[in-house]
Each structure stands twice: as C-alpha cells, then as structure tokens.
Design a protein around this nucleic acid. Structure first.
Lengths: 114, 114
DNA sequence: GCAAGTTATCGTAGAACGCCGATAAAGCGT
DNA sequence: ACGCTTTATCGGCGTTCTACGATAACTTGC
C-alpha cells in the first residue's frame, strides 16, 4: 500500500498580491489588537517559531516539543487558528498546522504601522 | 514667571545604533510574547496610535480620547510602560507619555522574524 | 499652608485565561 | 467491526485581566 506522502506546504503557491486593507483606522486597530493578543503568550510564540522553522507543516508533534499537556497545546493551537495566523488541515488521523503567510504579512504590516 | 515650554519629544536625538540583541532564541521569544501581550488590547493599541500620531508627547488627555475611566487608562498606560513600549516623564503636575522608538523597533524586529 | 488639578494606587467584582485530566470524536489499519 | 492513534472538547480550578469608583499622592498657584 502506498504510504501517504507527508504534506509539505499548506500554501505552496501563495498569492503574492498586495494587501489592500488599510493599515490604520478603527478596524485595523481591532485587528492589530486581536493578532498581537494571539501572539502574546510564550507557548504560542514557540508554536509559531516551530511552524516557521520547518518549511513543511508540522503536525501534532508540536505537543512533544512543548512542556505542556496535549489539551493545553490544542487550546493554544485553537487560539492561533481563530486569529487566522495558522491553519489546520485534516490529514488522515492527524491535523497539519501551518503558518498562514498572508495573516503573518498582515500582522507585520500592522505592527510596522506603529 | 517663565511658562514651562511644552515638551516636544521625549527622544529628540534618539540613538540610531543597531540593535545587537538576537531576534530568536528563548530570550527573544519571551520578549516577543511580552511585547505583543502588551499591545494585545484595543485600548492599548489606540493609545499607541495616539502617541505615534503626534510627534510631540501627549499627556493625560489620552484619557479624554478614550471611552474609559481615568483609572482604567492609567492602568493601561502602566502595562505599556512596564513593557517598555512607552515612557512616562513627569512634567509638572502632569505626566508626559511617549513611544520609546527603540522598544518599538525591537518589537518590529521580533515580529519580522516570524 | 491650602485649594485645585492631575495621575497613581487600592479595593473589588465579573470576565477571561491557562492549565490539567478525563472524555469524546474521527480516521486508519487489520 | 474493533482497536489504535490522534486531536478536540468538557469540567473544574486557580490566576490574571479589565473595568470602575474611591482615595491617596504630588505639583502648581494663590
């Protein structure tokens, strides 16, 4: 039987088009607050770093990298996913989490506007 | 009596020297988490925006710009000050808050490293 | 020294967060 | 269908956050 090939990247041909959303204003402010709030925890920063280190997506072995219970890691992943910074694709019995480059660029733009 | 001249900038000749601190590693991760946590609230984003709009420092009329009680704003200012993102200089009976450009650059570097 | 104005701190109440173990849900392989 | 593995969700508990009013601390000007 063919072994399922490990997924390499979630955004292989990521759209490079410019982000037209404004970088200031009430809406942008809320967005910036929400995004930075999601990043604002050591465990979540660590997760983001793990995901950016490997060009391929890492699955739930994130859990084994962190000194936290599986349920806790799952919750942090949920926070990041709700913020849009990462995506989770179901890949067989596991879930493959990846950084969303667009959301990350958005965060950088917003922070850069300060 | 000479009227106290309104303070214009808190960092008039800000040191432009490069930031040598590493942008990754456990220490940087904690720093990034702490800084983004400080930014991660709508009211605090608004405060940062207020302070960046005016090149001069704004004092406690920040309070009148936000729909929050004075004590609440004072607490948010404390969070930002503790994070290092802003500084508060006593200027007569008031306090003059300013963005710290170095901390802001640090934040941008750290976010940029994601 | 006193009154007025400005800001920080205290006390408190409710909401949200962070963590865990236990349990449920979902897919794979036999 | 039945385990096995992986992940999500639930319940609970302690901590932190956010907000407010009240009060204290400090400076200026009279």
């Amino acid at each position: 039987m063919v072994k399922k090939s490990p997924r390499q990247v979630c955004f292989p041909e990521e759209s490079r088009q410019a982000d037209l959303r404004p970088v200031e204003g009430p809406q942008a402010d809320k967005e910036l607050a929400a995004l930075t709030k999601a990043v604002g925890h050591p465990a979540r920063v660590q997760i983001l770093r793990l995901l950016s280190r490997r060009t391929a997506c890492v699955c739930g072995d994130i859990v084994s990298e962190l000194p936290l219970a599986q349920s806790t890691v799952s919750q942090h992943l949920k926070v990041l996913k709700d913020s849009g910074l990462i995506t989770g694709e179901i890949d067989g019995p596991r879930v493959c989490y990846c950084l969303d480059p667009r959301a990350l660029r958005r965060l950088k733009s917003l922070v850069g506007s300060l």
